[in-house]
Design a protein around this nucleic acid. Sequence first.
DNA 1: AGTTGGCACTCGGGCCCGATGAGTGCCAGG
DNA 2: CCTGGCACTCATCGGGCCCGAGTGCCAACT
Lengths: 338, 338
Amino acid sequence: MLSERRLEVLRAIVQDYVGTEEPVGSKALTERHQLGVSPATVRNDMAALEDEGFIAQPHTSAGRIPTDKGYRLFVDKLAGVKPLSSPERRAIQNFLGGAVDLDDVVGRTVRLLAQLTRQVAVVQYPSLTRSTVRHVELLALAPARVMLVLITDTGRVEQRMVDCPAPVGETALADLRARLNSRVVGRRFADVPQLVQDLPESFEQEDRGTVSTVLATLLETLVEETEERLMIGGTANLTRFGHDFPLTIRPVLEALEEQVVLLKLLGEAEDSAMTVRIGHENAHEGLSSTSVVAVGYGSGDEAVAKLGVVGPTRMDYPGTMGAVRAVARYVGQILAES
Amino acid sequence: MLSERRLEVLRAIVQDYVGTEEPVGSKALTERHQLGVSPATVRNDMAALEDEGFIAQPHTSAGRIPTDKGYRLFVDKLAGVKPLSSPERRAIQNFLGGAVDLDDVVGRTVRLLAQLTRQVAVVQYPSLTRSTVRHVELLALAPARVMLVLITDTGRVEQRMVDCPAPVGETALADLRARLNSRVVGRRFADVPQLVQDLPESFEQEDRGTVSTVLATLLETLVEETEERLMIGGTANLTRFGHDFPLTIRPVLEALEEQVVLLKLLGEAEDSAMTVRIGHENAHEGLSSTSVVAVGYGSGDEAVAKLGVVGPTRMDYPGTMGAVRAVARYVGQILAES
DNA sequence: AGTTGGCACTCGGGCCCGATGAGTGCCAGG
DNA sequence: CCTGGCACTCATCGGGCCCGAGTGCCAACT
């Protein structure tokens, strides 16, 4: 087991490296931190830390930088979550409070998070299947054409066109609308499939085709893959990476453009607690030199979606975690209010 | 005026430079193109072109590269629009055809355009004010709370929460919904303000407050600034820029993140014809080394929004213009069908 | 008048080299 | 177990050098 002081040395290395972006040596360490020992002692500790794989040297005779494993230890044992200053909190509330609809909430959140953390922000739209139904609307746009609109308690609105096998009467449509809503309003979308299963049977023969078609479209909309949406922002912050970065930035931008990758990334995060994935812990190899800090958010206790940031492994973890957590809470509040 | 051959030399320079990304010299030019004259003659022509400001030398003894003015001349006089190959056309149709809703159409378009041009794609959502009303829906979510949903003929759906001054009865709401729709359906959103102006007066005293509030929210939604939305994609293509580019890429990413900037950029493009803005012709200085190729698209003759790409001034103009034009046409078709 | 080959000149990029200095590992002594 | 001393390593930086692509100009040719 590592002694207390060695952990302290690791913490100092992480902090300095995050600050300066340069490998940190034993002398500089003793100067900037009150470790109470000489550089030579620190060197011994560093050698031990290196043996254990927590730090590494880029070149034979340079300072040390933390490895992924080192950051892991730092995050788990050495770092707290830094709370935001109260002006920051107020700024968040003001900024998020002005949103007019869900798109606006998500858009503002993503910008806010990017600005606070100076990193790339990712915000998932509230998942349909985890939300509850506020209303289902059916609109006849043409004789055999219906628009299906789903509205969730979080304010998300999804619409689909439905081409019906036969013209639909206005009364039949109103009937379907009423019966559908009486069954599903206030229930979770995830439960909708069972709740509507036997609905076609209760209709006249001639309308069953239409009813089934509408319901089929409704169920399609709830399929995992398609129902997830997200927004990203702050990609300009990637340029603050290393100076070498055509190579660094490229795969990251590519990964960010693939919604599937990002959704999987967020999906891997735990629902309740804040999750930090460091470097190679991320499955996607384009993100092997970045860390992902993510957390669920929701209007109640349960998470309806996740948000987080993507940044270099060399990031200010306590500050980033603080910002992510705070933003998630405020977004939850906003959603609960609307 | 420039002689025929000098124009030919300029065209050759642009083509070679776009291909190789390196300054092109007189000798290389004569080797790669059948100009029928010797390098020395080309040198004289180049000197003339430089005097006129169409080309420049990065260093005293290097080849020439086109200036913004040179590209301008190239685009206006020397370049056509390169049509896509028929497999490309088929791919576009297949890919866009699978979209399930407007978000999906826009999302697919942006990815498609980015992939075809290997540049950053920007697609604006169909403008509300230029679309026509398909339906206006009012939903009572709570006694004094109404959700307003606007649906356009292009499939765009906008929703707003309305907090009413007093509880609203279901019949009053149905009444308002019916009267509102009978007035505005099929009309252009831009005309809605006049069409509903006198609507509150026709209601009972007790409901007027609610009606006015709902209408006020409706009109707010149509205000220029807020009603415009857009989607961007292909930012990873920025990394194919120069090799120097922390400095090059940064301001571009920043500009792209500001919706306002992008909207203004697209707004400057002409409605009907394809517009090419080269380098400093763009007002925003972060984009002074990029070109923007944009064109309007719509389900009918009239443009309901614009789309385009942003790339280095050194881009393949004929190919890019061809792709942009083709995609705009297909998107228009898709919208007309839905 | 326009075109051409010849020629001197410019200057950025690549390469080698030596100096510099931060940082290390090891060891002997406290 | 800590510390100061010491020899060693090696990346970085700047200077000097050469090379060659590319130019501008000029005199000669058509």
